[in-house]
Design a protein around this nucleic acid. Structure first.
Length: 639
DNA sequence: CACCGTATCT
DNA sequence: AAGATACGGT
């Protein structure tokens, strides 16, 4: 039913159903026969199981369904049931005066499609045709799967055939097949008032379907954007977001056979490559045309929580940089961080924008594809809750001076997509005000967070992690990500070595011409004025505060020649985080010098990106804190 | 009752 | 792993 076809509407359909009634009690035979006839069924009666069997053998395909009593002198009803199951594949309904569980169970186990208690009610008999009907459906499905035909039309065809009255014509509409997996019928119960027992076909979220889903989400996101502008007039504000509920998405998707549950279920799956944000829902659109990197949206479901807690546990044991352990990233790309990383990767060579915005207790990160015109700001947006719940709740604007420590870690954390601190009061975000955006633009949409003060979840904030102190005077924090990074010369670039060994081996070995290159960034000095201007409130996505343009200089493209172990440098979350921490440490006078990006992506990833993305890199930062995340007093190597 | 988010099952 | 289904809450 879920697949789009409906029950036969022919008035004639259930009428004429050929029913064989088997019961040793003549009284019951009479009663049943009368009732069945009232249902317009064709009834044949028999008071001996043996006779019934013979009759069935003689007139193969002469009946559509059998109703048999369990207790009969000549042959146990179950025996008959079994026999029928073996010789002819007909639905059999068992009945008895008692509903003893074991008996019913036995009946079901022997393949009964239903078990009726005497006295049998009219309604029950009226519904028996459904067993026949359902059987037909199962057969069709069976054939379908056997032949690998997934087209629903096939099933439709089968039902139409059914509907067209072959049943009435007495034709051989039910093929004689051995009853398979009788257990499957266990769930039949006396009601069986509908075909709900037919298992729902699994929805396969094809790229196509998913795309629709994404579009729907984005559409919703767009709607919320409209509100954003208004909301943002107030500094403190909690901007809000549209409700991205399954229902709404479903409606927007406009896919008839899809159900709300399907959407809800889909929402539960955390995409592995997005930046998870506490209590938020995010939709990310990756470059089109690439398999796994499609868009996704997830809610804060259990699956996601499990993922986080797992991540956290891994972190617990070791106090490494910002609480991250290498193991976190060793085997697989953790959801989240990679996204950002990826964004950067994407942009290192393309003229895309990354826009970081801070709004009250919210931080917005926007990544815009340069291809979009000025008006089209929609890009990747990620909301990063800051870890200062109380303040956030009060709508207090973080003091730049203070934010350098704890609050800032919140961002780091977010970036890292680690522990979701539900204390992060509500927050939300969005951006942009443009209308057209095709689904081709990488997009990340944020959704509102529910406010829950007490909402502390099971994932307490690992405090230590949040209080890494940075010395503003020091050019580089003395914190080191567990490793590879470091080695920062006084003036030389910081080398970041890959943690993604796997990634490296998979992607870096075969280098493409563009495999590595560097981007020169202008130096920038951040001063407190900028800061304040921004603090007031992020004036939307306009280039406030800092604006850095990383121009891809093809000239500067140089092979990554980090000898030593011969390993190529690969950026990792840690790397990014590291940046961010560094940034946190400096609220003032930070000069950006050499930022060197070396593409660690191989041709594969590159092809994955639209060509236009490789035109340069541009960063737009509204909030210094965030901007700084890229500002290192020394050069930076990301390979 | 409609919808949600989440937990659990398959 | 990815979906379906169950379930409790609003």
């Amino acid at each position: 039913m879920e697949n789009g076809f409906s029950y036969p509407r022919t008035d004639a359909f259930p009428a004429g159903l050929r029913v064989l009634v088997v019961d040793d009690d003549p009284t019951w035979i009479k009663i049943l026969a009368r009732m069945l006839e009232k249902c317009s069924y064709r009834v044949t009666t028999c008071c001996l199981a043996r006779d019934a069997l013979n009759m069935l053998r003689e007139r193969k395909d002469g009946f559509d369904i059998i109703i048999s009593d369990v207790n009969m002198p000549d042959m146990d009803g179950f025996k008959l049931l079994e026999q029928v199951g073996l010789e002819m594949d007909l639905p059999v309904i068992m009945m008895s005066v008692d509903g003893e569980r074991s008996r019913v169970m036995k009946g079901v186990q022997h393949g009964a499609c239903d078990y009726l208690l005497k006295p049998v009610r009219m309604k029950e008999l009226q519904n028996i045709w459904q067993h026949v009907f359902r059987k037909k459906i199962l057969e069709v499905k069976d054939i379908e799967s056997q032949e690998g035909i997934e087209d629903i039309q096939m099933m439709k065809y089968g039902l139409d055939e059914f509907d067209n009255g072959q049943l009435l014509s007495g034709g051989d509409m039910f093929s004689v097949k051995k009853r398979r997996d009788m257990e499957n019928k266990e769930h039949d119960d006396q009601e069986f008032s509908d075909s709900s027992t037919v298992k729902k076909a699994r929805v396969v979220w094809s790229v196509d379907l998913h795309q629709k889903f994404v579009n729907a989400v984005n559409q919703i996101g767009f709607d919320s954007d409209c509100h954003l502008d208004n909301a943002c007039t107030e500094p403190i504000s909690v901007i809000f977001l549209a409700e991205i509920g399954p229902k709404k998405i479903l409606d927007l998707m406009n896919v008839p056979w899809l159900t709300r549950e399907n959407i809800a279920s889909h929402l539960q799956c955390p995409p592995e490559d997005i930046e998870p944000t506490a209590e938020s829902q995010i939709a990310v659109m990756h470059p089109p045309g690439r398999q796994p990197k499609t868009v996704s949206l997830f809610s804060f479901g259990k699956k996601y929580r499990l993922y986080l807690s797992r991540l956290q546990k891994q972190n617990e044991p070791k106090t490494s940089f910002a609480g991250i352990k290498q193991s976190d990233f060793s085997s697989k790309d953790p959801p989240g961080s990679f996204d950002l990383q990826r964004s950067i990767t994407m942009h290192q060579n393309n003229a895309a924008n990354i826009n970081f915005g801070y709004c009250g207790h919210k931080i917005l990160v926007q990544d815009m594809d340069s291809q979009i015109h000025e008006g089209d700001l929609k890009g990747i947006v990620s909301a990063l809750p800051i870890a200062e719940p109380k303040k956030a709740l009060m709508g207090e604007i973080p003091d730049p001076q203070k934010t350098s420590s704890s609050s800032r870690m919140g961002l780091t954390e977010s970036l890292r997509s680690l522990v979701p601190d539900v204390n992060y009061a509500s927050f939300e975000c969005t951006f942009s005000k443009q209308h057209c955006w095709s689904g081709e633009v990488p997009v990340m949409q944020l959704k509102q967070l529910k406010q829950e003060h007490d909402g502390n979840t099971h994932l307490p904030l690992p405090s230590p992690r949040h209080h890494i102190q940075m010395d503003p005077l020091q050019s580089a924090p003395s914190i080191c990500p567990r490793t590879s990074i470091m080695e920062r010369g006084k003036s030389g670039p910081i080398e970041i070595k890959p943690f993604y060994t796997e990634y490296r081996s998979n992607h870096v070995t075969s280098k493409s011409p563009v495999d590595s290159f560097s981007v020169q960034a202008d130096s920038h000095i951040i001063n407190s004025q900028d800061f304040e201007a921004i603090s007031t409130f992020r004036s939307s996505m306009k280039n406030h505060g800092l604006n850095q343009n990383f121009i891809n200089n093809s000239e500067s493209v140089q092979p990554n020649s980090i000898p030593g172990n011969g390993s190529n440098l690969v950026p990792s979350h840690e790397d990014l985080e590291f940046f961010s921490l560094q940034g946190y440490g400096y609220t003032e006078n930070i000069g950006l010098q050499n930022i060197e990006f070396s593409d660690y992506t191989d041709s594969e990833l590159i092809t994955e990106l639209p060509g236009h993305l490789y035109n340069g890199l541009r960063l737009n930062c509204d909030y210094l804190d965030l901007i700084e995340y890229l500002t290192v007093d020394q050069g930076l190597f990301i390979t």
